[in-house]
Computed example of a mutant assay.
Amino acid sequence: MGTRDIRLVSTGTALPGEPVGNAELARALGMTPVFQQWIDAFVGTRSRYLAIDLGTGQVRCSLADLGVRAADQAMAAAGVGASDIDLIVMATSMPDRLLPTTAGEIAARLNTGPIPVHQLQSGCTGAVQALDLAHQALLAGAGRTALVLGGDVCAKHVDLGLDYGRLPPAEMVNAVLFGDGAGAVVLGTGTDFPASPMLHHVLVRLTGLGRPTGQTVEWFGPGDPDTSRPAVWEDFKAIQEAVPVIAAEILGELLRGQEWTPSDVDYILPPQLSGRMTETITGRLGVPAAEEVSCVADTGNTANALPFTQLQMVLPALAGGDRVVAVSVESSKWIRAGFVLEQP
């Protein structure tokens, strides 16, 4: 099994509803025109997609709904059906419920066979963590085809009765950064999918030991009705300072592992925190010849769905010999991650 190579065969994505621009978001959340200008200038995200209707407060779709749509799209693009999938791994920071798992719900709705189904609880690097586990499983001979999913739906954290304009920045910023969505990829062996890009390496490493938490998302139950703690909190300044540095370190480690130089990279998939942050990060990465693949300014930060959206953008453009490097940073406990693709 040591010589087995794994291919990233296809992608699928799903976004809810129509794009929500900054003016519409600011009106719905009670923010002033000045604050809208701050979103435009400082955050740099133009729109996002939300599972909740900002006019009525109705939740229009679940993460499972979006996951099924993304999975169907990815499987159709790969030319496989649910019965061909040997393994499912999903990552999310905001599942529909604690139990049953959203991954299990999606598998049931896809009508897969009695296969291993795993769900990871993680932030923005979760999609890469799921990719890593599926990649390792296929390398070890656990099957020939895996479905990897990632996504988040933030509806539980949108309160239309709250005056967001009065929140401290550490709580308010999440309302403008994030959007909802899901993504999926099909992984398969090189024997079955010889024309697909090779997934050379997936990197996942916890590096937050001793570092203060950059983001917290609480879970409240009936036995813990502590409303003194904010449900979502983020140290955006610390994230602004740390992520570009960490991203450059991740890129360097991935390149050294492949014995590539920065000039060998044809496409770079940078971390997608916000439009402005992505500009800063990409400038720091030092791969001027590589084409940047970014979507966050239009989709918002969809967390575990974002790498799949980037992949869906880049895969159709790949020509023989093209090399792709993806970088991801999770700031709650500072996980660094990334992966390397090469088109044969």
Rank of each mutant, 00 (worst) to 15 (best):
V20A: 03
Y267F: 15
L131P: 01
L306D: 11
W260L: 11
P307L: 06
P270C: 13
E171Q: 15
R4G: 04
M313L: 12
R4Y: 02
L87E: 06
E241G: 07
N22M: 02
W334K: 00
I6L: 08
T302G: 05
R69C: 05
L133V: 14
T309F: 11
A317C: 14
F339M: 10
T45P: 00
G210N: 08
T261V: 13
D5N: 12
L25N: 02
F42T: 12
A175L: 09
L177I: 05
L29V: 07
T213M: 14
T112M: 03
A184I: 07
G30A: 07
L306H: 07
F339K: 00
E218I: 09
A142T: 12
Q343T: 07
A238F: 04
V186S: 04
G67I: 01
T112Y: 04
Q58D: 13
S263F: 08
L98F: 15
V59Q: 12
I268D: 02
H200N: 13
E249V: 10
W260C: 01
Q215R: 10
V20S: 02
Q119N: 08
D298A: 13
G104Q: 08
G257I: 07
G338A: 06
L209T: 12
A77P: 00
L120H: 07
A71E: 04
I115T: 01
L99W: 15
A41L: 12
P230H: 09
D152H: 04
R205I: 08
L120P: 02
E171C: 09
D163A: 10
G320P: 00
G67V: 00
I106A: 04
V176K: 00
P33F: 10
A231W: 07
L251Q: 05
Q129W: 06
F220K: 15
G214I: 06
M172D: 01
V287L: 04
E291R: 13
K237T: 15
S196T: 08
M172H: 04
A23F: 06
D322M: 05
G338H: 03
Q136C: 12
V217P: 00
L87T: 09
